[in-house]
Simulated assay, not measured.
Amino acid sequence: MNINNARFEKGAVKPEQYPDNDIPEVTFVGRSNVGKSSLINALLNRKSLARIASKPGKTREINFYNIDDVLYFVDLPGYGYAKVSKDIKSAWGESIETYLNESKKLKLVVMLVDIRHSPSEDDQMMSKWLTSSSLPFIVVATKKDKIPRSKVKERLSDISNTLELGSGNMLIPFSSETKDGREEIMNYIASLV
């Protein structure tokens, strides 16, 4: 998949603010600070297109990145950040759920988890929701470069078991430092879009 022009198009919080066209969407979801912006930047071969928040839990909008007018990467607010009020958490949850339920152009959800830790309760809830929704999704285990190579298989097994992934669910280890896993993710996205 060749990318010539990737740009931030808009931020939205309500469906009427989503882009009004028929361009398919690939959506990124995960806990705050899991590396969504870093993954998007690495996939697009950009350094800072997707903005990395200065503090976890700061991104509140759904961000739409237009790729060559043929695809959107959609960055959802991170979930599970403890240091925000219940009202803000509730609003984020509503915003995420509304988008996932109402987007008619959603082709794939890329769920991110940190390879260094067992998936949280929020991650498990998201995985169950995605499974029951029958939306196509893959799981990307970020920060692969932060653990020894000898531990990767063990961590992937823990993630797969904790999220109760089936044989049809793809789990890809990824490093934004080395871009290991990038090609596999991009090939999968290209095959769907």
Rank of each mutant, 00 (worst) to 15 (best):
A53G: 05
K55M: 10
K55V: 05
P56E: 01
P56Q: 04
P56Y: 02
P56G: 04
P56V: 00
G57H: 03
G57Y: 11
K58P: 09
K58N: 14
K58C: 06
R60W: 03
E61Q: 02
E61C: 04
I62H: 03
I62A: 05
I62N: 08
I62R: 06
F64A: 11
Y65E: 10
N66G: 00
N66M: 00
N66E: 09
I67N: 09
I67E: 05
D68F: 05
D69V: 08
L71R: 15
L71M: 13
L71S: 06
Y72G: 03
Y72I: 10
F73A: 05
V74L: 09
V74E: 03
V74C: 12
L76R: 09
L76F: 06
L76S: 04
L76I: 03
L76Y: 15
P77I: 08
P77C: 10
G78V: 13
Y79A: 06
G80A: 06
Y81W: 12
Y81A: 13
A82Q: 13
K83Y: 02
K83Q: 06
V84I: 12
S85M: 03
K86E: 15
K86I: 02
D87W: 07
D87M: 08
D87P: 03
I88K: 06
I88G: 04
K89D: 00
S90N: 13
E94M: 02
I96M: 00
I96Y: 03
E97Q: 11
Y99K: 08
L100Q: 02
E102Y: 08
E102V: 09
S103C: 01
K104Q: 13
K105L: 03
K105P: 04
L106P: 01
L106I: 08
L106R: 05
L106N: 15
L108V: 09
V110H: 14
V110K: 02
M111C: 00
L112C: 05
V113T: 02
I115G: 01
I115N: 03
I115W: 02
R116V: 06
R116A: 07
R116W: 00
H117K: 14
S118E: 15
S118Q: 06
P119T: 11
S120T: 10
S120E: 11
S120Y: 04
E121L: 13
D122Q: 03
D123N: 00
D123F: 13
Q124S: 02
Q124D: 06
M125T: 14
M126P: 10
M126E: 01
S127R: 09
S127A: 12
W129G: 09
L130A: 09
L130M: 04
T131Q: 05
T131S: 02
S133Q: 04
L135C: 00
L135I: 03
P136I: 08
F137N: 09
V139I: 10
V139A: 15
